[in-house]
């Protein structure tokens, strides 16, 4: 019965914390999408220079843990620029997810038939215009499922922000767990909130996917 008591009485704290989690995740993933698109375009570029930069970025970021990247930004860079906990976490999450999103976008772009780019170019469209008007809109539809998957991972990874003092879902549950000496209860409650967010998000992605399918 402890559990139900904690679950109900902690609602105001967790609602506020969930809002922080959503805000952090949304900010990070929005930036991650931009980073991902830029590096995906670099990776398919004809210039070796751009491909090299993109390869290096993706290799380094995918090859190191998010918590290391987060600490490097929050503690490491603090002597030069102090982003504060929210922006440190947002930047770390964005940079981290950006590498995975870049690969998702690259795959989506390369899955579009070559004939599409050729047809667009044969009509006098520049590479950039053809990319923007012809290739990316088609590629975007195809990357919705893997992108949704990456967003779910990003949402859950945002819990690491607790370690740079963010009062998001996990941070709040750590605090409540230790003050009430009720670890099992509060971590279970935190898990339920994450689960609810992921289920809600999955529902939205599925609806978007269905709508895109009807359109085409």
């Amino acid at each position: 019965m402890d559990f139900l008591h904690y679950l109900v009485t902690s609602i105001p704290f967790f609602i506020r914390a969930a809002a922080v989690t959503v805000e952090l995740t949304a900010t990070a993933l929005a930036m991650g999408m931009v980073i991902g698109l830029v590096f995906a375009l670099m990776k398919i570029s004809g210039r070796r220079f751009w491909r090299c930069i993109a390869d290096t970025y993706i290799t380094v970021i995918r090859g190191t843990p998010l918590i290391v990247q987060l600490f490097a930004i929050y503690f490491g860079l603090a002597t030069i620029v102090d982003f504060g906990s929210f922006w440190s976490a947002a930047i770390a999450l964005a940079v981290h997810n950006g590498a995975y999103i870049a690969e998702i976008f690259r795959g989506g772009i390369q899955s579009i038939d070559r004939g599409q780019m050729e047809a667009a170019r044969s009509l006098g469209m520049s590479y950039g215009l053809a990319m923007r008007r012809i290739i990316l809109p088609q590629a975007f539809k195809r990357v919705v499922p893997p992108l949704g998957n990456q967003f779910i991972i990003g949402l859950k990874d945002s819990s690491l922000a607790a370690f740079v003092t963010m009062k998001e879902l996990f941070g709040v549950s750590m605090q409540l767990a230790s003050t009430h000496f009720a670890e099992l209860q509060f971590y279970t409650i935190a898990g339920l909130y994450y689960l609810a967010l992921v289920v809600l998000f999955t529902f939205l992605v599925n609806r978007l996917e269905r709508r895109l399918k009807i359109e085409s």
């Binding site: 038939d113 004939g115 599409q116 050729e118 047809a119 667009a120 170019r121 044969s122 009509l123 006098g124 469209m125 520049s126 008007r133 012809i134 809109p137 088609q138 539809k141 359109e215 085409s216």
Partner: peptide, 29 residues
């Protein structure tokens, strides 16, 4: 791109833009 404006091409596999309707395909360029 200036040359290609003057040289139309029709492909074996049509290569219409599948996310645009017929009218949008034609007016795009």
């Amino acid at each position: 791109n200036l040359l290609r404006r003057e040289v139309g091409m029709v492909f074996q596999h049509f290569n219409l833009f599948p996310h645009m309707n017929v009218l949008e395909n034609i007016i795009e360029a």
